[in-house]
Structures are given as structure tokens and as C-alpha cells.
Computed example of a mutant assay.
Amino acid sequence: MHWCHDRNLRYSPGRQAVWECHAHLVFVTKYRRGVFTDEILRDCETIMRDVCDKFGCELREFNGEDDHVHLLISFPATVQLSRLINSLKGVSSRHLRRDHADHLDYYLWGGHLWSRSYYCGTAGGAPLSTITEYVQSQRRPI
């Protein structure tokens, strides 16, 4: 089988398929509370990057504001996005609530960090550079 590709695009080969999958994810805090500081967002990025690595994914961009985060992820076609999302939210919630309990407990209660809902859009219509710029342009708290 012959695969035509542009050298500027990154395709990931598998045993029987070649893929280029990207998702733009947005997670919102419970009650849309403005709980994030720059320090918490840095920790959140580290945690989410580790989760992505364990799933064989790449966290290409991460940013957020005081009440939500944006992620741009490259993932293999074999990854079930709902499982990845559940792990990203669950692991980050546990670690951030443990490491920043005093701050987060002031704003949130009931052991929750994230709203149950989320946004997931596959990045195929807009160029990745456009999505990258959008994620980078978030008004991160100081």
C-alpha cells in the first residue's frame, strides 16, 4: 500500500493503519468557579501531560483561565477518547485537590473539581496552527 503524505504533517503508523488524530478538549470547573491560579495550572498541565503519555498520546498545547482549561491532544486511533478524558479529569482532580486543598476547598465542596460536562472537538476543519493560537491566547491568571 502506498501512502502519499506531506513531510510537514506527522502521521503515526500502526500495524494496519496510519493516523493523524487531534482533539481539542475543554474542561470546566464545577459550578464554573474561578479557582485556578498560574501555579495550579502549571501543576494541572504536568499531571495531564503524564496521563497523556501513559495513554500513548501527546499533549501538544495546554492553557487555561481561572475556570477552565484547553488541551490540544494528538492521539493514536486506538485510544478511546472517553476513557482518556475520564482519566485526565479523574487523575488531575485527585492530585490537584490533594496538593492545593486549602485553596480549592475554599471555592469547591463535595470532593469535585471538574464539571461533569466537557467539550471535545476533533481538530480537522481548522488548521492546527489556528487551534494552537486559540489555546495559547487564553487569559491565564497571574
Results as ranks from 00 to 15, higher is better:
Ser82Leu: 06
Val91Met: 02
Asp43Glu: 08
Asp66Thr: 15
Leu84Ser: 14
Thr122Trp: 01
Leu59Gly: 08
His22Trp: 10
Gly125Leu: 12
Ala17Leu: 07
Pro76Gln: 05
His95Pro: 03
Gln138Trp: 03
Val69Ala: 00
His2Tyr: 09
Gly14Glu: 14
Val35Gly: 02
Gly111Lys: 03
Gly124Thr: 13
Cys57Glu: 03
Trp3Lys: 08
Val35Gln: 04
Arg139Pro: 15
Glu133His: 15
Ala77Gly: 12
Arg139Ala: 14
His112Ser: 08
Trp109Lys: 13
Gln138Arg: 09
Ser115Tyr: 07
Thr37Lys: 12
Phe55Tyr: 11
Ser137Ile: 06
Ser87Pro: 01
Ser93Trp: 02
Arg33Phe: 03
Arg33His: 14
His22Phe: 12
His2Gly: 09
Ser117Trp: 11
Lys30Met: 07
Arg83Ser: 13
Ser129Met: 01
Pro13Gln: 15
Val135Cys: 01
Thr132Phe: 02
Met48Phe: 00
Asp38His: 09
Leu128Met: 13
His5Phe: 13
His103Val: 09
Pro76Tyr: 10
His112Phe: 12
Ile142Asn: 06
Gly121Val: 05
Ala123Arg: 03
Arg7Met: 07
His95Ile: 10
Ile85Met: 02
Thr46Tyr: 11
Arg10Ser: 00
Lys30Tyr: 04
Asp102Glu: 14
Leu88Ile: 10
Ile40Val: 15
His24Phe: 07
Arg32Gly: 12
Ile142Glu: 14
Ser93Val: 05
His5Thr: 11
Arg42Asp: 05
Leu41Phe: 08
His68Glu: 07
Ala126Thr: 09
Ile40Asp: 09
Ser137His: 11
Val69Asn: 07
Arg42Ala: 12
Trp19His: 15
Arg140Ile: 00
Ala123Met: 09
Ile85Gly: 00
His70Gln: 07
Arg83Tyr: 08
Lys54Ala: 10
Leu59Thr: 11
Asn8Met: 04
Ile40Gln: 04
